[in-house]
């Protein structure tokens, strides 16, 4: 398989940049495939009657691990394959159901090179359905600092993916 893809460099990114938005029409298949792909057999992600009668929601809904996969896809659509995600932290505020059109948007909040020479961009992501924010996410992705740099070559102590502000970035319930 041959495929070309963007390879974003750290120098291409500035604080305040917006990532291209991603709009996706969610169907029951989206929810069920996402649940099964993450080996999540819980019935609220495939059984309409369980979701509505036991959970009291209007339909089956996207599961958490699949949302993580959507965030990874959204970030690396932007960076290309040389982008290496270090950290993703998301908070689910409202469920996403079949029939919803979910729209991902994001803004770059920080650009830096760490003490080991690794380039990083931090992004704030929101997933909306209409005007309603369903999930928010903070992410940190390593980007090449030059065309010859490859964040994936970092191993062990040369790879420090945790957010530089430690626990401060973790959303709290």
């Amino acid at each position: 398989m041959t495929q070309t893809a963007t390879r974003l460099l750290l120098s291409d990114v500035t604080v305040g940049d917006s990532l291209p938005s991603l709009s996706y029409d969610v169907t029951a298949t989206t929810v069920v495939v996402g649940a099964l792909a993450t080996r999540d057999w819980r019935p609220q992600h495939h059984d309409y009657h369980f979701a509505t009668e036991r959970n009291g929601v209007k339909n089956i809904f996207l599961n958490s691990p699949n949302q993580l996969a959507w965030f990874e896809r959204y970030v690396t659509d932007w960076t290309g394959p040389t982008g290496r995600v270090g950290y993703l932290s998301f908070r689910m505020i409202d469920s996403i159901f079949p029939g919803d059109t979910m729209v991902f948007t994001a803004t770059v909040t920080n650009v830096e090179t760490d003490e080991l020479g690794c380039g990083w961009a931090e992004v704030d992501i929101a997933v909306k359905v209409g005007d309603k924010v369903c999930t928010t996410c903070k992410g940190r992705v390593a980007l090449p600092t030059s065309p010859d740099d490859n964040p994936w070559s970092r191993r062990g102590e040369t790879w420090v993916p945790q957010p530089r502000r430690g626990e401060d970035q973790k959303p709290r319930a």
């Binding site: 398989m1 959507w70 990874e72 896809r73 290309g80």
Partner: peptide, 23 residues
Amino acid sequence: TACASVENGNPLFWDDAVAAELT
């Protein structure tokens, strides 16, 4: 299957040459 579920076309997971080069 996981990449397909979110339509993730990152060549790192689909193209062995890219995977060999980068990872």
